[in-house]
Write a protein that binds this DNA or RNA. Structure first.
Lengths: 193, 193
DNA sequence: GATCTTTCTTAAGCTACCTTATTTTTTTTA
DNA sequence: TAAAAAAAATAAGGTAGCTTAAGAAAGATC
């Protein structure tokens, strides 16, 4: 049973008895994905919210010119989906793929909706999850507006050292909103002075 | 009684009986603020989450060089606070001020926490509020990463026509992450060709 | 209703970051 | 383990957006 991690993630915020655990767990779809496997493709229906049990996933937006903008990385213990499209049953704007071989648990929109009704404590749980996600995203906005690329890169390295080790610089650059060439220049220290 | 708007805002997502309404309303502090009045100053304790009954507020980050970055505008029917500092009882990073004379309702952290316990439906309500806030903020991140200033300006005009009418261009520029001079250039159409 | 302050515009010179291209290094795959 | 593919580094030239500054317009204040 691989459920211990996701249950620990949840019981960090709410407590569940055995029966509630069972009725939650039975909705989970476990999935093993290989490196570079795409679990959601832009344009498709976004049916699931995903919990990363192990490995690392990446969500990105692909524009008309083919440029990728990385919206988030999710490693062990994180939740990830195209939230707008998941909630509103719209075709996905984002693509989500595995950076490394990963194990995830998927929960469908319908199952989540019925979970909210059957076990209202999940409202609290996801209220906290969304609250944190909002705060993180807002902080990122502040940094995007007020800092240089080099400052944002250094903050990224400090905040997500594990991610920095596991993903390519091209992917980090697309998270920071700069080209890989310019990130390389920053790393070389050549843009100082 | 000015509570009809805030109650309507809430009952759009959850239903409340009269007793619940009463026990919610009694926690609200009504406040009238004048144009340019600051309701939260960077560094201070952020005690309240604010509902805008009328008027328009603006939250911004002020960096060491004195540059403002506007995080959000909140007009009638919106909720606004420095969420990170409100939730974590930290000194505020943001400053919130009234753009125009406004009437707001304030709810303290302690009152909100007890409300979650007393009326768990509020977990659902704020789960939805945060969910929407997160989605909005993430969409903004995508746009910040992938679009030019001019494209972001046009989207802003379409998305928030009312805000565009009520705030200065300097404030819009600081929301878009550009200088007022450059926004003026964009508006003049001089940067095309 | 005149003065003071702030906002907006315009313009010239500048810089952070982009584009394109080439080479080197690392990773993937047969 | 060799070949192919992808990532990273380096460099030259280009552009979106910044800085500084000065004048015009609009708002605030007495």
């Amino acid at each position: 049973m691989l459920h211990h991690l996701i249950l620990e993630n949840i019981t960090r915020h709410i407590s569940l008895d055995q029966e509630e655990i069972n009725s939650f767990v039975c909705h989970l779809k476990q999935k093993k994905v290989t490196k570079k496997e795409v679990i959601l493709k832009g344009g498709q229906a976004c049916k699931y919210i995903n919990f990363v049990h192990s490995g690392i996933l990446r969500a990105y937006y692909l524009d008309k010119e083919g440029k990728q903008s990385t919206i988030m990385f999710a490693l062990t213990d994180w939740w990830i989906t195209d939230m707008f499209c998941f909630i509103n049953n719209q075709p996905a704007m984002l693509t989500i793929e595995a950076v490394e071989e990963s194990i995830i648990f998927q929960l469908s929109k319908d199952d989540l909706d019925s979970l909210y009704i059957k076990i209202p404590k999940f409202e609290r749980f996801f209220r906290i999850i969304f609250q944190n996600a909002y705060i993180r995203e807002q902080l990122r906005t502040i940094q995007n507006l007020s800092l240089t690329a080099e400052e944002r890169y250094n903050i990224f390295l400090n905040k997500y050292p594990q991610v920095a080790k596991q993903v390519t610089q091209k992917q980090i650059a697309s998270y920071l909103g700069i080209t890989p060439e310019f990130l390389s220049t920053i790393r070389g220290g050549k843009n100082k002075k």
